[in-house]
Amino acid sequence: MDLSIFKTDSWDGLKRDEKIAALRELEHKTPEEQGREKVRIVVEDKLLSAGTFGHYCDKRPCKLYINSCYLDSKEPLTNYAAMATVIHEGRHAYQDDVINLDNERKLIKIYEIPSKATLHWWIINSKIYNDEQDNFIFYRFQPREFDAFNYAHYKMKAFKAQFGNDVYYNHYIEQRTLEIESEINEAIRAYTKKYRQVIADDLFDSYKVYVRKKQKTLRFLLT
């Protein structure tokens, strides 16, 4: 895929439909790298609140919602934030495929399998998830979000060869790096240096309650 369409001077000249097409193409390029299935992108202007730029929905057929504010905004860096969002949400689709919650889509080759521990936390996190209404830091460092944010930033940084001569790209990376550093610092201050473990342990406590409930239901249904 020719990514130059995302460069600030090209992006700003695109029509709404062309922007959507570009984001779709970006999403469909990633599954080939990951060995997961493609996800349909839906532009949404009511479902998502102002601070939520995207959402991955695992109800079949799974969808990737993207806030329409990306398409209409004249704010600088929107192009790169939109790319990062598509990559972030696509990563949730990958997590979903890997943890096998998927019953309908055919299993296709997943090129990179996470460690067993990571997989377990993702499964737990898929059952017990702190949604967008929660405190940002707590939401941000739950296992699946931690991974999706990390992955998107890593991917965005890797586009340096394509976008390095766009000052807005460099500014975007700088800004995101600062933001991420500050998020980690806040998490350490609020939840100690083991913040990821603290948050995961908390999810696990809720998960145990969930499992007990599920077992009860099972017994009820089978007796």
Binding site: K116, A117, I123, V211
Partner: peptide, 27 residues
């Protein structure tokens, strides 16, 4: 339905036992 629920439950148990046997950090 029964088999599906049973398999679901086994998956949950599997995760639970693995997590309890060391993945959990215990802060």
């Amino acid at each position: 339905d029964m088999i599906e629920r049973f398999l679901d439950n086994i998956m949950l148990e599997l995760i639970k036992s693995n997590v309890e046997s060391g993945v959990k950090g215990g802060v």
